[in-house]
Write a protein that binds this DNA or RNA. Structure first.
Length: 579
RNA sequence: GCCCCCGUAGCUCAGAGGAUAGAGCAGUGGUUUCCUAAACCAUUGGUCGCAGGUUCGACUCCUGCCGGGGGUACCA
C-alpha cells in the first residue's frame, strides 16, 4: 500500500530499522515504530498510517514462519509489535545456553588493536578514592572491548616523572631522616609531600630547590636517581597489592620515565614541521584553535613537561600499535591538556601530509570523568585531604563479612566471599553512575548492600546458582516455550535478548554504566519471577512437581545466571556462587 | 574574562527527539509451613535550574541566562 511514493521507498528496511525503538512501558510491545515521520510523505494522519501498516505487517506475520515479531497493533501514532515468544524464547535461551560466556561476543574488533590507559597513579603517593574511578572504568572497558573481539592493551601509565619528584626528594632530605624506605612506606611519604606544600607556602625558595632537584634527576645524578628508584619500588608494591584486591589487570605497566629518550626526536620532528616557536623563553606550539593556550614542549630552563611526554607517548603507541582507538581514562580536569596534544598531533599530520591511514587523529579519545567529592570538598593530595582507597575497600569487606556471619554463618569461604562482595559494592558504586558526573563519596551509600548495588546482583546470582544446585534434572534449551507464559518470564527473555545491545551501548559511549543499569534491570526482572505469587497468593516456585514446567524455568534460570555472571565480569566484579 | 562538564522526587541516580518522566535509598504498610528476606509487593513524593527557539512532538537538539564544579603556558 505504501511501498513507494515517486522515487522514494517509504518503508525501506534500513529506514524502518533505524526508526525502531523500545516502548517506555514494556507492556506496550517489544518494538515500536512511531509513524509521525511518515506523515508528510504519505499525507495521511498518524493513527491511520499506523493502522494500515499494522494490517499489512500482520498479514505478513500470519504467513511467515520463525519470525520473532508477533502481531502488531496501532496505538495512536505508534505501531507496537509484540514479540512472538514461541520463537523468541527458544531462540534466545538456545543462544545463551549454547554460547555460555561467549554470548554477546562480537568479531567487530578482529585483528584491531585497542588501547586503554587507566589508573595512572602517581608513585610516591597512595592511591586515593580519586584513582578508583579511572581504574574501575578502564578495567571494565578493557574487558568490554575484548568481548567485542579487539586485541586490547590495558595500560597503567604511572606518574613517575616530573617536578613533583624534585619536591619529594627535597622533602625527604629535609625531614625524612627516620622514614624507612622499605615495606609499607607510602603513607609516610605522603606526609612528607604534604609537609613540603605547607612549607612552600611560607618559603617559595623550596619550589626552586625542587626544580633543581628534578633537573638533577633528569641529568642522571646517581644519589637522586637512587632515591627515585626507591620511591618507585615502594609504590609498585603498594599498587600491585591494591590492584590484586580489586581484581584489576593491566597488559602493560609503563610510566612517564619510559619516554625520557623519546622526547627529543619528537621535538625535532615538530620543529622540522615548522610548528614550534619560542615564546617567553619556552618552546611552544601555537595551536590553530584560539580557545586553547599554546602547548608547551620545553620550559625556559630546558626541562620537559607533561605535554611533551604525552605527545611522545602518543606517537610511540601509534607507531607500535596502529590502534583502532586509544582511550585515556583520565579526569575531566585534564580535558584541555588532551585537546592540546590532539591538536598538535593533527597539525603535525597535516603539515606532513600523511595519508589518511597513517593518521591517528580522531582515534584518540579522552574518556573523561567527574570528580569524587567528599562532603562539599574535592579531595586534594597536596593538602592531605584524601581518603585512602585501601581504607574504603577494607571497610566494605569488613562489613560484608559481618553480613555473611549474620545471614549465612554456614558459608565455607567467608573471607574470600566477603572480599568479592565488599569490592563488588565499591566498584559497582562507581560504575552505575554515568562517568561525566561528579560523584559524592558517602560512606553510608558505599556501605549499603541493598537496592541498586553490586551485592544485590551478586546475591541474585548466588540465588540462581542455588537453584541449579537444588535441581536434580539436567538443564537444556529444549523446552516447551509455552510454559514460560507469565508476563514476568517473558520480560526476562526479552531482556536476555537485549544483552548484546547493552554491551555495544557501553562500548559506543565508552562507559560501562550501560552494562550496569542493564544488569539491574535484568536482576530486578528475574527477582519478580522468583517471587511471583500465583492466584492463591502463594509463591510460584521455580522447581515444582510439574517436571516439564520446572525444566522450562530452569533453562531460564541458567540463562539469566550466565548473563548476570558475564555482565558482572565485564564490570570487573566477581560472581560468588554462594553468599 | 574565555573554555569544558554537571543541574530530573527529601537524598543518590536512570531516561542515546516520541506515549502517563522512572528506579533505588530514606518514610509508611505488607510478604517467610516456600528454591538464600542482601529479596519481593503496595504506598507517599516532580515548575525535569530559568527563558526563548527548532520540530507534528523537547528532560533530550540550538541560543541566552542562573547555580555548582573544573580548566585557563613554564605542576601532573
Amino acid at each position: 500500500m505504501y511501498k513507494t511514493i515517486g522515487d522514494e521507498q517509504v518503508f525501506a528496511p534500513d529506514f524502518v530499522f533505524d526508526n525502531l525503538e523500545t516502548p517506555k512501558d514494556p507492556k506496550l510491545g517489544w518494538f515500536s515504530l512511531p509513524v509521525f515521520r511518515f506523515v508528510r510523505l504519505l499525507k495521511d494522519k498518524p493513527p491511520e498510517i499506523a493502522a494500515k501498516v499494522a494490517a499489512e505487517t500482520n498479514a505478513l506475520v500470519d504467513t511467515a514462519v520463525d519470525l520473532t515479531l508477533a502481531r502488531s497493533s496501532a496505538v495512536a501514532g505508534f505501531l507496537n509489535a509484540q514479540a512472538d515468544h514461541s520463537v523468541l524464547t527458544p531462540q534466545t535461551l538456545g543462544e545463551v545456553l549454547t554460547r555460555g560466556s561467549r554470548y554477546g561476543d562480537s568479531d567487530e574488533g578482529q585483528s584491531r588493536n585497542y588501547l586503554v590507559e587507566y589508573c595512572s597513579a602517581n608513585i610516591a603517593k597512595p592511591m586515593g578514592i580519586g584513582h578508583l574511578r579511572s581504574t574501575v572504568i578502564g578495567n571494565s572497558l578493557r574487558r568490554i572491548y575484548r568481548k567485542l573481539g579487539y586485541n586490547v592493551v590495558g595500560i597503567n601509565y604511572l606518574g613517575d616523572w616530573g617536578t613533583q619528584f624534585g619536591k619529594m626528594i627535597v622533602a625527604y632530605r629535609r625531614w625524612g631522616e627516620g622514614t624507612p624506605l622499605d615495606g609499607n612506606a607510602v603513607k609516610p611519604l605522603l606526609d612528607l609531600y604534604v609537609r613540603f606544600h605547607d612549607a612552600a607556602e611560607e618559603d617559595d625558595s623550596l619550589n626552586e630547590e625542587a626544580r633543581q632537584a628534578f633537573r638533577k634527576l633528569e641529568e642522571g645524578d646517581p644519589e637522586i636517581t637512587g632515591l627515585w628508584e626507591k620511591f618507585k619500588a615502594i609504590s609498585m608494591t603498594e599498587f600491585e597489592r591494591i590492584h590484586k584486591m580489586l581484581g584489576v589487570e593491566f597488559d602493560w605497566i609503563t610510566g612517564e620515565a619510559f619516554l625520557n629518550d623519546k622526547m627529543e626526536p619528537v621535538i625535532e620532528r615538530l620543529q622540522k614541521d615548522g610548528l614550534t616557536e619560542i615564546s617567553n623563553g619556552a618552546l611552544v606550539v601555537i595551536l590553530d584553535d584560539p580557545r586553547l593556550p599554546p602547548c608547551l614542549l620545553k620550559k625556559a630552563d630546558g626541562g620537559t613537561l607533561y605535554a611533551t611526554r604525552e605527545l611522545s607517548s602518543l606517537i610511540y603507541r601509534w607507531d607500535k600499535y596502529r590502534f583502532h582507538e586509544s582511550l585515556y581514562v583520565v579526569g575531566s580536569a585534564q580535558a584541555d591538556h588532551f585537546k592540546q596534544v590532539q591538536r598538535v598531533v593533527a597539525m603535525m599530520e597535516e603539515a606532513e601530509g600523511l595519508a589518511e591511514a597513517d593518521r591517528m587523529t580522531g582515534r584518540v579519545k579522552h574518556v573523561e570523568f567527574g570528580w569524587v567529592k567528599f562532603g562539599d570538598k574535592t579531595m586534594s593530595t597536596r593538602r592531605g585531604n584524601i581518603i585512602f582507597l585501601e581504607d574504603v575497600i577494607e571497610r566494605a569487606v569488613t562489613l560484608a563479612r559481618e553480613k555473611i556471619i549474620e545471614k549465612n554463618p554456614e558459608l565455607k569461604a567467608i573471607d574470600e566471599t566477603a572480599r568479592m562482595i565488599g569490592v563488588g559494592a565499591v566498584i559497582f558504586g562507581q560504575l552505575s553512575v554515568k562517568r561525566h558526573k561528579d560523584v559524592n563519596f558517602i560512606w553510608e551509600d558505599v556501605l549499603n548492600f541493598e537496592g541498586e548495588t553490586g551485592p544485590y546482583l551478586q546475591y541474585t546470582h548466588a540465588r540462581l546458582c542455588s537453584l541449579e544446585r537444588n535441581y536434580s534434572g539436567s538443564i537444556s534449551p529444549e523446552i516447551n516455550p509455552a510454559l514460560l507464559d507469565h508476563a514476568e518470564e517473558r520480560r526476562v527473555v526479552e531482556l536476555l535478548a537485549d544483552f548484546p545491545d547493552a554491551v555495544a551501548d557501553a562500548a559506543r559511549a565508552y562507559d560501562p554504566q550501560a552494562v550496569a543499569v542493564y544488569l539491574l534491570r535484568l536482576g530486578g526482572a528475574f527477582n519478580k519471577v522468583y517471587q511471583r505469587k500465583d492466584d492463591a497468593g502463594r509463591i510460584d516456585r521455580i522447581i515444582s512437581d510439574d517436571t516439564e514446567r520446572s525444566a522450562a524455568r530452569m533453562a531460564l534460570v541458567k540463562a539469566v545466571r550466565t548473563v548476570i555472571r558475564e555482565g558482572l565480569l565485564l564490570l570487573g566484579l566477581e560472581a560468588p556462587e554462594e553468599m
